[in-house]
Design a binder for these strands. Structure first.
Lengths: 211, 211
DNA sequence: AATCCAATACTACATATTGGGGTAAATTAC
DNA sequence: GTAATTTACCCCAATATGTAGTATTGGATT
């Protein structure tokens, strides 16, 4: 009698055949993992997604044809419950956040050691989100605001509301101050940030993590 | 000759004295860690911050007096280089994000096992961001967009730019389409989201993770 | 006590933006 | 080949925005 409950159905998407087959060989050598299929393109993986019905997909981002980020998006749309772990050489911050936004549940960088791959698979199965050290730090730091903001507390508050698309009138109502006071604050914000419009202010504020 | 390079100066802020002293005892029993001081309140930790000059602060969030989230903020303002690891029983999502926004570099939940605490310390020292499984998953999921958006790709694009404070004119320039087309898209967005203004649309979009 | 900064509020003015009502062609996707 | 998407245009009135000033108050710092 097979114990299917503890066996993870795994699909690999990786254009480097040596790496792809290496992963498959490694994983198939362990009872609790089963590589149901492996592909060199997202397009192929998508075609067989339903029949493969993987629990976990290991995928590279730099692939021939469709980019991995879009691949993640499409795969998650079709099979929302699948856990996708990105395995790549890229630590580029934009790419990391794009992949996570697209629906990746983990992001680990390719290293010489295979044990971290196995740990990552076990970790998503346990409801976690495996990430390499640097990636985890990048992700956590993305939440943190600049501690040396030139703006006062009130100005920051106003700018935050402005960034939510609220008008001067609405901001004044929410902060229980006069509309003209809001205008004063915004004038000061624009001067401090050296900008001349809402869009520029928000852009700079996001870039400098002032809000 | 002491090897100060590999010794981590640690401060503990924890109101449960048994836990506090337990941590201190555990860490002081290992050469590479040195608990320089431990407190039951953030206020006390802040007073001695400069003289303690810790590399790492382990802190609870629920504390008498100042709340841990504000404590993190103040500590990071004074000592930006310190790595703060939150150690708490709370897995409440708001609290997690507040702590990370305030400047925490790690967030682990209190468990019976002490080895995860030691691992967490080593991980921040290595430039990582230690998190419990559930916390990591919460953090990663916070990036993910709703896969069942009622909006089309173009509409999402328009709404994204709108949420950055850009006017119809600017959006039309950036997307190389006519301003009237932008208006059409926005009219459709408002209809689909059942809203009647920019602020409402952005609010709903953020709430439903459409952007 | 003197000074600075933050937060508040006002006047005035020109221009730009927004939201609502319609309609409809061209393109893309299934 | 039909449906959905993307594109573009008309009209209109109300509201919002950005700029330029001035000025009072309260709290903190020195």
């Amino acid at each position: 009698m097979e114990d299917t409950v503890t066996t993870s159905r795994i699909v690999i998407v990786e254009d480097n055949e040596v790496v792809k087959d290496g992963f498959a060989l490694l994983l198939n050598g362990i009872d609790k993992y089963e590589v149901v299929n492996s592909y060199i393109k997202c397009e192929d993986a998508l075609k067989n997604l339903k029949s493969d019905s993987p629990d976990i997909i290991l995928m590279d981002l730099e692939l021939p044809g469709m980019h991995g980020v879009e691949g993640i998006q499409r795969i998650k749309k079709e099979l929302p419950e699948v856990n996708i772990i990105v395995i790549t050489v890229h630590e580029d911050s934009d790419l990391v956040f794009q992949a996570l936004c697209a629906g990746a549940s983990g992001y680990i960088t390719k290293t010489a050691n295979y044990s971290s791959l196995l740990e990552a698979i076990d970790e998503v199965n346990a409801g976690g989100a495996p990430m390499s050290k640097n990636i985890a730090r990048m992700v956590v730091e993305s939440f943190q605001k600049n501690q040396d903001s030139p703006l006062t507390k009130r100005e920051t508050e106003v700018l935050e509301l402005l960034s939510k698309g609220k008008s001067y009138s609405i901001i004044s109502e929410e902060l229980f101050i006069h509309k003209e006071t809001v205008k004063s604050h915004i004038k000061n914000i624009y001067f401090k940030l050296q900008v001349h419009s809402k869009a520029e202010a928000i852009e700079k504020a996001l870039k400098d993590k002032l809000i």
